[in-house]
Amino acid sequence: MVHLQCGAATDVGRVRSTNEDAHFASSPVFVVADGMGGHQAGDIASAIVVEEFARLAHDGYDSSKAPEVVTESLKRCQRSIQQYGEEHRNEGDGDWYAGTTVAAAVLCEDEEGAKWLLTNLGDSRIYKLHNGSLDQVSVDHSLVQELLDSGEINAEEAATHPERHVITRALGGPVFRDPDFFVLPLSSAERLVLCSDGVSGMITDHVIHQIVSTTDDPRDAAEALVSAAVAAGGEDNATAVVVDVVGLTESATPHVLRTEPVSLEEKLGALP
């Protein structure tokens, strides 16, 4: 049995009028989604992702088939976002577009025991804290990351690049783009941090490390990350989820992971 503690926080920031970020944090599923497209577009797209992953947590899933389960969940999100967009465009709004990034952590299990299955689309990030060291696990799907990988720019230039918010993969586009998957033993990541680029784009990895390595309670850590991002300028919606592994009993038999039902009505309201 795996024992987890988590915290989550979000803020609209100082510039935007609508919070298009959404998050879900309830063992064994954790997700941050950063919506794009403006009010009643990006916020709906990110809400669709959270609704789908909450359903996954509530209904349970075969943890030995987590990559297939998560891929199918993302494809359902893609279809729902596209369908919602088609309805708007059929009503005469030809320019209507909705999309969202996704960063998710899901518990999985095999004959070696429990692990983290991490996945991302876009530039919402996943970090792990282990033995006091913070490392970014996910790789941004962004134009700036491609320029970094090709050596055309350096990290300092990337931080201020005029197209640093241009992403190359997301849910909601005309074609489903495959997500990246990463598998981590629980013992290699005593703390996970999932965040939108409203956090990672406003504060440095050094500041993120300082906060998550010195704040014991994951709820306080999530609040501190978001507060720091807002204090640094709050140019975008800022969302963080922090998850701690506080106890682990290894099991050799994969099983269906389940949690108690979680209501999203207060957070999201009824989706159209």
Rank of each mutant, 00 (worst) to 15 (best):
G122E: 03
A57S: 15
V262F: 07
C108A: 11
E157L: 10
V32E: 10
S227K: 15
K75C: 11
Q145I: 06
L268I: 14
G201I: 05
D59Q: 12
V245T: 07
G94Y: 12
R79K: 10
H130A: 07
E68N: 11
A189S: 10
C195I: 05
T18E: 10
L121C: 14
L74Y: 08
A105F: 03
A229L: 03
V102G: 10
A224Y: 03
A159I: 07
G122K: 02
G234S: 04
I48E: 03
P261Y: 13
G151A: 11
V183Q: 03
N19C: 07
L192Q: 04
R79H: 04
Q78R: 13
A54S: 15
S63V: 12
T215K: 12
E146M: 14
E112D: 13
F24V: 06
E152V: 05
E91T: 03
D220P: 15
R258I: 13
K128V: 08
E190R: 12
L248V: 01
V241L: 04
D93H: 04
S73V: 10
N131A: 08
E86M: 14
K75P: 09
G35F: 01
L148P: 13
P185F: 12
E146K: 15
L186H: 06
S17C: 04
F53Q: 15
G122A: 13
K115T: 00
S46Y: 00
R258N: 08
A54L: 01
I48H: 02
A8F: 13
E111W: 12
S64Q: 13
L268P: 00
V70N: 05
V226K: 00
A158W: 13
K115N: 09
V245M: 00
P162E: 05
H130E: 02
D135W: 05
I81A: 02
C195Y: 09
P185I: 09
A33M: 07
I203H: 12
G132Y: 03
V243T: 06
P179V: 03
S196A: 01
A33N: 07
T249K: 13
Q40P: 02
Y97D: 10
H209M: 03
E250Y: 06
A98Y: 00
Y97C: 14
G198I: 04
N237T: 06
S138T: 11
I167M: 02
I167Q: 02
L186N: 01
A114H: 13
A228G: 02
Q210S: 13
I208L: 00
F176W: 06
S142F: 02
S46L: 03
V256R: 15
R219D: 14
